[in-house]
């Protein structure tokens, strides 16, 4: 929707220097407050006047929220670290290449130079109707415009839909889940650490949110344990254009082989549901099996069981099947 709508309506801008100050501002403004990281998910909302916060709280001046640190053999990535910094970090490239590949596949160079990893995993759904301000379920209404006979739903969900059929748009999310990352959340009361897998929620849990973050909560860091360091990785994203476009479907996997068999594996797909989908049944089915065509075939079939395509997104079923097969075969993107 490339409509230039003049200037963004006025809001009060705050640039607090600490997490505590940021949270006291968010508490003061409640639903009228908005957290700003790189802003690349934020700008459309504000420019289109769909979201009209009274106060924008910029996390950019808070020290210690940005940068990649090596801790306990793993990594701690500050929420305000840009996608480019993640892509370029030598330890990410060497041991957790899956994440570098996923981050590099997002958006465009300029967006990666500014968009943060915390924002990338916390970004909102990209459903046309929702983003254009239609009063759908996700916006607090009682209808889904995409899931209608004439709705534009080519990009939408094939799994786990519940009234809303929007998908999670993040490229880094499936890679982080495959790497068993932990999300460090600061609530107004305490620090809480949540598995990446549980950070993302679907409409059945809360139809208006994409993550477990409650208003006032901040994501401060993402920890990557050493568990999957140097494993064999596979990431692939299928999209219409190679730049800017969100994934139609993407897949991320981490595999440890023992002999010629799959010893241990984590397999995650995004772009198919409102949250990234970890394919636990597939993981269990292929563990111990040889890494060959028959196993890939089994995985691909199992992955899409229960898929319910909409009018225009039936192609996502074979697409997901094929991406899962490739991830199991591990053709490209092997640990370099």
């Amino acid at each position: 929707m490339a409509v230039i709508r003049d200037v963004i309506p006025a809001f009060e801008l705050f640039q607090p220097a600490s997490i505590e100050d940021a949270q006291s501002l968010l508490a003061r403004y409640g639903p009228e407050g908005w957290v700003l990281a790189g802003g690349l998910d934020t700008f459309d909302w504000l420019a289109d006047r769909i979201k009209r916060p009274t106060a924008v709280v910029d996390l950019g001046q808070i020290k210690g929220l940005s940068g990649v640190r090596v801790v306990d053999g793993g990594l701690e990535i500050g929420a305000m670290t840009t996608l480019t910094e993640v892509v370029q970090h030598p330890v990410v490239r060497e041991k957790y290449r899956l994440l570098a590949e996923a981050a590099e596949a997002a958006a465009s160079p300029q967006i990666r130079n500014q968009g943060t990893i915390g924002g990338n995993v916390s970004q909102d759904a990209r459903c046309w109707y929702y983003r254009a301000g239609w009063p759908c379920y996700r916006a607090g209404g009682n209808i889904c415009y995409a899931d209608t006979p004439k709705g534009l739903n080519r990009e939408h969900a094939i799994l786990d839909a519940d009234r809303c059929v929007a998908v999670n748009p993040s490229d880094t999310a499936p890679a982080l889940i495959a790497l068993d990352a932990k999300m460090v959340i600061r609530t107004p009361k305490e620090e809480r650490v949540v598995d990446a897998e549980d950070y993302f929620i679907g409409p059945a849990t809360d139809i208006t949110r994409m993550t477990v973050l409650q208003p006032g909560d901040l994501l401060t860091a993402i920890r990557i344990p050493s568990t999957w360091a140097g494993a064999q990785f596979y990431f692939e994203k299928v999209r219409d254009r190679n730049v800017w476009d969100f994934a139609l479907v993407n897949v991320a996997s981490a595999t440890k082989v023992s002999g010629s068999a799959i010893g241990d594996v984590r397999l995650v797909v995004n772009g198919v549901a409102a949250h990234p989908v970890r394919l636990k049944a597939v993981e269990a089915a292929v563990t111990g099996k040889p890494r060959n065509e028959a196993t890939a075939e089994l995985a691909g079939q199992l992955a899409v069981q229960g898929a319910q395509p909409l009018q225009h997104n039936g192609y996502k079923v074979p697409l997901m099947t094929n991406l899962v097969k490739r991830a199991i075969r591990g053709v490209a993107g092997e640990a370099a």
């Binding site: 006025a10 607090p16 220097a17 600490s18 100050d21 501002l25 009274t54 001046q61």
Partner: peptide
């Protein structure tokens, strides 16, 4: 800007 300045708040701009 119509929003009033909040000079007292932390991080006011």
């Amino acid at each position: 800007s119509t929003a009033s300045a909040q000079a007292s708040a932390p991080g006011a701009v």
